[in-house]
């Protein structure tokens, strides 16, 4: 593992622990969603650091690409106890909308829409994330696919070194 991947993975794991802590403490969703967005972005960037296309400066759209990539990886399939890549795709497919919802929480990806860091919409920033009643991804996270998604994240952070 290269030093950049190791550093990004280390920070992602720490962000993930903060996400879990804030969520279990019932802190406002904007805060734990912020850490969820950051840890998923960083773990994806960690992966791409050791490829021919290390992440550029300032980009935030890596996690969905990473999840798509993961759906074709034999070691991930084996690690999840699945028999075929088709089964792995069936496992990952419902998680893609959740991944997109999390990726879209970054202000630069959100554009005019809701984000977890700054008042929005960008052109008339009158709603603070802390006062936003519900983010679009929240119902997805508490549904059955959300349970699978969070279980997958657990496995991802545990198994990253073996899978990649």
């Amino acid at each position: 593992m290269g030093p950049e991947r190791a550093a990004f993975l280390s920070q992602a794991r720490s962000d993930y622990q903060l996400f879990l802590f804030l969520r279990v403490q019932s802190q406002p969703p904007c805060h734990w969603l912020h850490y969820l967005q950051m840890c998923t972005e960083k773990v994806a960037k960690a992966y791409f650091w050791d490829t021919s296309t290390p992440p550029g400066d300032g980009g935030h759209r890596y996690f969905v690409s990473f999840m798509t990539y993961v759906s074709g990886i034999t070691k991930v399939r084996n690690g999840l106890g699945l028999a075929t890549l088709s089964e792995l795709r069936n496992y990952i497919r419902p998680l893609i909308p959740i991944a997109r919802g999390i990726e879209a929480l970054s202000p630069s990806v959100a554009g005019e829409r809701e984000n977890v860091e700054y008042p929005f919409p960008r052109s008339s920033p009158v709603t603070a994330p802390i006062d936003h009643p519900q983010f679009a991804v929240e119902p997805l996270l508490i549904g059955p696919d959300g349970v699978v998604f969070l279980a997958f994240l657990d496995r991802l952070f545990e198994q990253f070194d073996d899978w990649f």
Partner: peptide
Amino acid sequence: QSLALSNRAGPFEALDFSVDVDGLERFT
């Protein structure tokens, strides 16, 4: 069609999706 429209000016960034197939990386 689900990507956020972020008014990117390009050029677009490509990401490496190379996969091992039966232990071999056939193509980048």
